[in-house]
Nucleic acid binder design. Sequence first.
DNA 1: CGTAATGTTGAGCGCATTCAAGCCGGGTGG
DNA 2: CCACCCGGCTTGAATGCGCTCAACATTACG
Lengths: 220, 220
Amino acid sequence: MPMGLTAEELDRIDDMVAARRKIKRGTTLFRNGEKFTSLYAIRTGFFKTRVASEDGRDQVTGFQMAGEVIGLDGIVNDHHTCDAVALEDAEVCVMPFDRIEELSREVNALQRHVHKIMSREIVREHGVMLLLGSMRAEERLATFLLNLVQRLHARGFSQSELVLRMTREEIGSFLGLKLETVSRTFSRFADEGIVEVKQRHVRIVNTEALKDIVNPKACN
Amino acid sequence: MPMGLTAEELDRIDDMVAARRKIKRGTTLFRNGEKFTSLYAIRTGFFKTRVASEDGRDQVTGFQMAGEVIGLDGIVNDHHTCDAVALEDAEVCVMPFDRIEELSREVNALQRHVHKIMSREIVREHGVMLLLGSMRAEERLATFLLNLVQRLHARGFSQSELVLRMTREEIGSFLGLKLETVSRTFSRFADEGIVEVKQRHVRIVNTEALKDIVNPKACN
DNA sequence: CGTAATGTTGAGCGCATTCAAGCCGGGTGG
DNA sequence: CCACCCGGCTTGAATGCGCTCAACATTACG
């Protein structure tokens, strides 16, 4: 993934990938409490990660798609502190972390890459905290849709059409809302002609309107 | 900070610290948009970090005290994406990041340490997301107080008494509440005899009660 | 000692939640 | 092939928690 490498370095990074692993929809790649050994690069499929409080409640901390790396939570205590659940059949590259550390001592570009991946996750979570801490329901859902469609577009999919891989309840958990509120907010967007929603199929009709909701028209 | 090092390794890590820097209360250590060069280890003092949305709103993403490291957000894009503000006069160690990367290629314990610091921050933020996404005001404030007092205790301070370095508004921003709600919730805790509050001085009278609020009595 | 910043408290409101009923669509088995 | 079922989704009505607006108290500080 990092660029500007010699052929030899690329080979060694290829070797770092111990194995590929297939994850069936609805099953977990890793769970809270399990021993941490590896990071996982998603090749295909779609995941959610979630943390749980001691009393049953849980919080979806993110949705991950092809090209993204999960498992970073496990490094600090050698045990995972969240669950990663496949929302559709998926395949990941298993990258043993001690091999990553070993190799990144020798390949600067890899070292840099690992640091950036972790920093990116921290910055992403800052954004989620801003969302959870200060936005109203419409802003949260609009932000969520724009983020999803932007990431899908970067992977060659449509800018305006997407299929949600998660339920209303999972969206709600991620956004700090109840599933009914998510549903109602979708309906409101649909009434206003901003999106067309048919179950999990969403067509964004008016991207600008969504952006206006996220960023209430700069008052000049 | 990492342990199990040879004297020579310790020396080299000492050298890594380019300088110390004093930060006056109310001023920023770094700001959103500034070029990223270094991580900062807090020697003394107390910081908040905050992110801002395009329209004025901002969100406090954390409070940091002695021994903690800030600046990790800057790695991914070579620019900081949040502000770090000193809530009291503070002193930090400036650790140029390229020196950290250089040295951590050679000193395994340092490499490991850097990875753990970043992972710990990711896990901490998961906890904040859980708080913001699923807790009610009382639970948020109780969680906040328990976390603060626990970190202070680890630094040799009291288990039951603390001085808040931040305003009600800053607490509110962190917890996703308005300052009035923070104030009211403090008052409610005081009425119930759980804490004694006098402006920024807080005495935790009944730790168990606070823990019960956070973790609603396991229903057996 | 006066002024501004910070904190407390009250009253009323509104947004998201809760509770409840019904709908839709996909999969299964008769 | 259709009837049925069940999980997911939508919608309505009522409730309540935290917010807004406002007044006042307290503290810090020049």
